[in-house]
């Protein structure tokens, strides 16, 4: 189980976030730690989190109404 979790965490590891970009198919080191790309990633992640929370909220709401209708019928 630990190995599985470690594998999934490793998928999220992005070494090139701070050192790698590729040029002409070869990997070269450039200093991208201060190009602030991570800001865009963070912003998109926040927007996506908002959308997911919104979907969850609708999901719960529909679930509540389903229960209500079910109890009304019986």
């Amino acid at each position: 189980m630990k190995a599985v979790i470690a594998f999934f965490l490793s998928l999220f590891h992005t070494p090139n976030l701070d050192m790698l970009t590729s040029v002409q198919g070869t990997v070269t080191e450039t200093d991208t730690s201060d190009n602030k790309l991570f800001v865009v990633v963070a912003v998109v992640a926040v927007i996506f989190t908002g959308i997911v929370l919104y979907l969850l909220f609708i999901d719960k709401k529909v679930g509540r109404i389903e229960k209500q209708i079910h109890s009304d019928k019986s």
């Binding site: 970009t21 590729s22 040029v23 990997v27 991570f38 990633v41 998109v44």
Partner: peptide, 12 residues
């Protein structure tokens, strides 16, 4: 996808 999509290696 969002994390690696923006930061992953790409061919130039």
């Amino acid at each position: 996808t969002i994390l690696r999509g923006f930061t992953g290696e790409i061919p130039h």
